[in-house]
Structures are given as structure tokens and as C-alpha cells.
Design a protein around this nucleic acid. Structure first.
Length: 196
DNA sequence: GCAATGATTTACT
DNA sequence: GTAAATCATTGCC
């Protein structure tokens, strides 16, 4: 069952990031469904430097984060990798959850094709740039809504007990200073698909 | 208008 | 372990 937009519009982005673990992310492109279980997330808020919308500063790129929760925010990093985010909270409060890794459960063959056949099994979707390529997500997905039929998140009725959730510092944001130390990265303990 | 740089991945030494 | 690939966005001139 798809998550309703109310799920994304609550005010605690860190809580939402934790609750997204164990949920299923899917895309449907040219009639082909691909997707998997979310096993790694990160929370981003305008209150800290790691976020593109730090200080609630609105630019052309991050404008979608100022819209209501449930929108998709995809952006290109290092000129070659698309990173997939879920916008949360209410309008004018820019916060988002970055989806960093999936455990594939649908369309594995199609995902292998998109990624190129090289590579180890556990490298198919174990990283933010990899999973967007596997699911066929690119910058044009920005602004889509997660109750659409093109991309959505489902509640798979998998319960992740809190002792199986690991909280660690976020990755790749050393420039954020003290904010880089926040324990806002959440992973499912002992899951093979979590990124290194 | 132009230069600097990053929420990364991959290949090579 | 280290480095290259590669470009949209940003901030400053």
C-alpha cells in the first residue's frame, strides 16, 4: 500500500528518515516496474550546513524543497550521478530525506541492464548514485509527486525494530563543519546492501 | 559572463 | 589506497 502524502508532511524529518527504512521504493518506466526495500537514508534540514537549502535560502535548484512534503527532488552531483531525495514537511520549510541504498525486490534484470552487467551482486543499488541509475531516475523526476504512478513508496508491512536501526554521521559533507557530526544517517543493521 | 566545486563511482597503481 | 571522470549550479566579477 502506497504511503499517503500526510506521511511526508509531518514536521520531524529525522523521524521520517528512520521510518522510511524497510519501506519499498518503486519506479515504473515504459511499463517496467523496478524497485527495492530502502535500507539506508539521510536527513537534511535548512537548519544545518549539509543541506542545499541551508538558512532556508531558495535557489532555482532547491525550489522544490520549499513545496509541500511528498515531492521528489533529484539533483546531479559530480557531473555524473543523480541523487534521489524525498521532500518532507509543510510548504516553506525545506527539509528532505536522501535515499542512499536499496535491497532490490522488483525488476532486478532490468536494473542489471541499466547498470551494465559488470559489477558484484551487492553493488547493484548500494549507493545513492547507483540506485538512481538502476531505477532509471534522473533530474526530470524533480517535482513529481510520490502518490503518482511513475514513482512511489509503499509500506511493505516490514517492521524494523529500533535496535536494528543504526544512526551514524552522514557521508560526504565534511564541508558542513559541526553539522557533519550529526547522527542523521540511518541504516538497517547487518544488511548487505548498505553502502560502504 | 566565468571559474570553482560537489549529498559519488569506478578504475587503476 | 589514490585519482580521474564530468557538468549543473552557484556566487562573484
Amino acid at each position: 500500500m502506497k504511503l499517503k502524502e500526510e506521511f511526508y508532511q509531518r514536521k520531524n524529518v529525522v523521524k521520517i528518515a528512520k521510518e522510511l527504512l524497510g519501506k519499498g521504493l518503486f519506479t515504473k518506466i515504459d511499463g517496467i516496474v523496478t524497485g527495492g526495500i530502502i535500507v539506508e537514508t539521510e536527513a537534511y534540514s535548512w537548519k544545518e550546513r549539509g543541506c542545499h537549502a541551508f538558512g532556508a535560502k531558495k535557489t532555482q535548484r532547491n525550489a522544490i524543497m520549499f513545496d509541500k512534503g511528498g515531492h521528489v527532488y533529484v539533483y546531479l552531483c559530480y557531473g555524473m550521478h543523480h541523487l534521489f531525495n524525498v521532500v518532507t514537511n509543510t510548504p516553506d520549510i525545506p527539509e528532505a530525506v536522501l535515499i542512499r541504498a536499496l535491497e532490490p525486490i522488483a525488476g532486478a534484470e532490468e536494473m542489471l541492464l541499466r547498470r551494465g552487467k559488470a559489477g558484484h551482486k551487492f553493488h547493484l543499488t548500494s549507493g545513492p548514485g547507483k540506485l538512481t541509475k538502476a531505477l532509471g531516475i534522473d533530474r526530470t523526476f524533480t517535482g513529481k509527486f510520490l502518490t503518482d504512478n511513475e514513482i512511489w513508496i509503499e509500506d511493505l508491512n516490514r517492521k524494523i525494530s529500533s535496535r536494528n536501526i543504526l544512526a551514524t554521521p552522514r557521508i560526504g559533507i565534511d564541508y558542513a563543519g559541526e553539522d557533519a557530526k550529526l547522527l542523521w544517517r540511518f541504516t538497517i543493521k547487518d544488511n548487505q546492501w548498505v553502502s560502504g
